[in-house]
Design a protein around this nucleic acid. Structure first.
Length: 737
DNA sequence: GATACTTATCTTTTT
DNA sequence: GATAAGTATC
């Protein structure tokens, strides 16, 4: 490999570091992927390491694919035998191979978010818990968090009564997963860790196989992932990790950037390389980004330097739209102008936002302008009901024990198996100690001769009909190809007639099913198991259409690892960036800041910072104030776009003009405004009898108010729309009397 | 049991 | 404003 001269001294130091633990702290745009690919190339061609002795972990499947092609390009030939993928994909692969150590059989499936939620709800119901009090999402988050920290149900720490409840749900949830012959995302990591931890022979086997382990985006690993990697590297310690604390944005998923610090403690002899030379952005962009991130503590200070070719660069452009429609219009207009003027190509642009919901208005604006765009993530294809239903059918065929899938499709299309019959079936299954799917198939096969027929009474015949279908498919699954099986199911269900009602909606539903079928053809060789595993582990993130010359719409999270000549960051309002839910937690706020930093550092040449003075949330208009992070960017790096509303320099740090006054003229002068609170609210601010004003519903009378979930819920009778229930911190109510 | 309609509740971010 | 959950009606 003679190409090492293409690297700068720091990069070269990282690539050629001697075996053993290596920590590379890589600022944005510093050639992180380059270092990883060269390191792999170096191991292979200079040190003579065989490909199958290398394990490389990336954050997304897309990053894995990219790394594969880049390494191959570097070597000049194809590369086989190296394990390369996300933590979840690699764990799934290990678990399939070592399935005999697990409480599951070989056909186990991976539950997605919806299935997990459904199972949690079921556990809650079985334990007679109030879903209002123990919200499925929050209970699930607690359980997921426990798993990410390698805490098993029996070890769940119980401090409060709530913990005790969560522990019970956790235990039951896990039983349900196992009896469904299924794992959730967290189980993939947890089981893999437990396998290596509990069985030294297995650990040895993998540690011997993976002589060299490389981890990308190390700042976003959670404890389970870190411990897993440590076990794998326990004997040889050849662990090469690359990351940047400043780009850690997955704390809510258990990621802990302090793993970087832990790594330094656990491997005191580690090599450490700092990459500060930025090859992506102009110095202006970097200065702005650093001004934002420098306010965070607990980080390795870095000085990002641009290269001379980039020059000083342009100022960041700030645009303050009247509302979110104006925001979207500005984005599309600006792109059209730049493209028409030959200053940029459509593919040069990225439009970023904090929440997926924000994409809608932007999409509409692009549609109206007749301009194509590409959208990353957000429930597109795999989130569609018809697609999920078909996947559920296939999963059920693969694994009849799958309760979540069975529950999803047992009555889709409607076949007369309502709530009562389903309950009877479940009871019978529990009594017999077998899965509902197996009972169904037996009913289908034996009919009245089945011992369950009697028990199910008049429900039996419809259940048996469905069971017969299921049994037939199950029998066929090893005989015919995946696409044929798929077609067979579609036929038996008359699925097209069911979903395609000849409306435009109907046609598009059927097209989605056809698209899934097309993907099934790609898995004709690899088979059903591989197909399902891929569906579970390949995200929308990974399905970004390549080679399409169009602006890209994506969340700030999805933007990690990407770069674009021109970047729009939209929704720069308090409540979005930083997000409302992070306001009262300093750690969460630090992460919001990192998120903004990640967005800024995606840009090569130019950044547009866009916000709206009013935006519709929950379907009604709300006033908003500029993101507090805007104040951290020095004024001389920003230029305000003249087309925007002039509202003084309210975003500047030295201005003490209150936000409340900047809206005068639009709304007339107002009494004191109640601002969203940062700390948990302990005392109600509104009392029955008060007159208040809501931005869109006008004046009303407070009927009741109480503290709920650290926030104030207010019942108001509005003169215009009557009775409404609002959240005080969101509704920006004014007290009139 | 299916369907059409109404209401409540809410939303980060994703493997 | 979208969707899950709840209610009314066939």
């Amino acid at each position: 490999m003679d190409s090492l001269e293409h690297l700068n001294p720091q990069q070269r130091a990282a690539v050629t570091a001697p075996s053993g633990p290596v920590l590379v702290l890589a600022g944005p745009g510093s050639g992180k992927t380059r270092v990883l690919t060269y390191r792999i190339g170096y191991l292979l061609s200079q040190l003579g390491v065989a490909p199958h002795h290398i394990l490389a972990v990336t954050f997304t499947n897309k990053a894995a694919r990219e790394m594969q092609t880049r390494v191959e390009k570097l070597l000049g030939h194809t590369l086989q035998g190296m394990w390369l993928g996300t933590f979840h994909a690699i764990c799934a692969r290990i678990l399939r191979r070592e399935q005999q150590y697990l409480p599951l059989d070989a056909s186990f499936v991976i539950f997605d978010e919806d299935d997990q939620q459904a199972l949690i709800k079921r556990a809650l119901r079985e334990l007679n818990l109030d879903e209002k009090l123990y919200r499925p999402t929050s209970v699930h988050a607690a359980i997921s968090n426990a798993k990410n920290n390698l805490i098993l149900p029996e070890d769940y720490p119980v401090g409060t009564y709530r913990d005790e409840v969560v522990a019970r749900v956790y235990k039951r949830y896990q039983e349900l997963l196992i009896s469904s012959n299924a794992v959730d995302f967290d189980d993939l990591l947890l089981y893999a860790w437990k396998l290596l931890n509990d069985f030294p022979a297995v650990r040895e086997q993998y540690a011997r196989r993976f002589e060299h382990i490389l981890v990308d985006e190390f700042q976003d690993t959670n404890l389970a992932q870190y411990e897993l990697v440590k076990l794998l590297a326990s004997s040889h310690r050849n662990l090469f990790v690359v990351g940047d604390e400043d780009q850690s944005i997955y704390r809510w998923r258990g990621a802990d950037y302090r793993n970087v610090l832990r790594f330094e403690e656990d491997f005191p002899d580690r090599q450490k390389v700092l990459l500060e030379q930025n090859y992506r952005s102009t110095q202006r962009v970097l200065d702005a980004a650093q001004a934002v991130i420098n306010r965070n503590r607990n980080r390795t200070p870095k000085r990002l330097k641009s290269t001379p070719e980039h020059g000083e660069g342009e100022k960041l452009v700030l645009y303050e739209a009247v509302d979110d429609y104006g925001e979207a219009a500005f984005v599309v207009d600006t792109i059209q102008q730049l493209v028409a003027g030959g200053k940029a190509r459509p593919g040069d642009f990225a439009i970023m936002y904090r929440t997926n919901a924000q994409s809608r208005l932007l999409e509409e604006a692009f549609l109206r302008a007749g301009m194509p765009y590409r959208l990353v993530g957000a429930m597109r294809f795999y989130g569609r009901r018809e697609v999920k239903d078909m996947i559920a059918y296939l999963r059920l065929v693969q694994n009849p024990a799958d309760e979540a899938s069975l529950g999803r499709v047992i009555n889709v299309p409607p076949r007369g198996i309502g709530e009562k019959s389903q309950l009877a079936l479940q009871l019978e299954a529990q009594r017999a100690g077998r899965s509902a799917g197996l009972i169904l198939m037996e009913l289908g096969q034996l009919g009245k001769d089945s011992p369950h027929w009697q028990a199910l009474g008049r429900n039996a015949s419809l259940l048996a009909d469905f069971g017969a279908l299921l049994g037939e498919w199950h029998r066929l699954k090893d005989e015919i190809s995946l696409p044929s099986l798929f077609q067979r199911i579609l036929n038996d269900l008359s699925y097209r007639e069911y979903i395609d009602d000849n409306t435009e909606e109907g046609h598009s539903r059927w097209e989605n099913v056809q698209e899934l079928l097309r993907i099934a053809y790609e898995y004709e060789e690899k088979g059903l198991t591989a197909f399902l595993e891929n569906l579970a582990l390949v995200s929308d993130q990974d399905t970004l259409p390549e080679n399409v010359e169009a602006p890209t719409l994506l969340t700030l999270h999805a933007a990690k690892g990407l770069e674009f000549p021109i970047v729009f960051i939209t929704g720069l309002d308090d409540g979005l960036i930083p997000h409302n839910r992070s306001l009262d937690d300093p750690e969460a706020m630090a992460e919001e800041r990192r998120l903004f930093y990640v967005g800024l550092t995606r840009a090569e040449k130019r950044v547009y910072l866009v916000r709206a003075a009013q935006r519709s949330t929950y379907g009604s208009f709300q006033d908003s104030i500029p993101s507090r992070f805007l104040k951290d960017i020095p004024a001389d790096l920003i230029q305000q776009d003249g087309r925007g509303r002039r509202m003084g320099k309210s975003w500047q740090s030295d201005s003490h003009r209150g936000w409340d006054h900047s809206y005068n003229g639009t709304w007339g002068s107002r009494p004191e405004k109640v601002k969203p609170s940062h700390a948990p609210i302990l005392q109600p601010r509104f009392r029955p009898g008060m007159r208040v004003r809501h931005p869109s519903w006008g004046e009303g009378l407070v009927v009741d108010s109480r503290i709920q979930d650290d926030d104030e819920t207010v019942d108001i009778f509005f003169d215009s729309v009557g009775f409404k229930r609002v959240i005080a911190s969101i509704a920006s109510l004014e007290i009139l009397s």
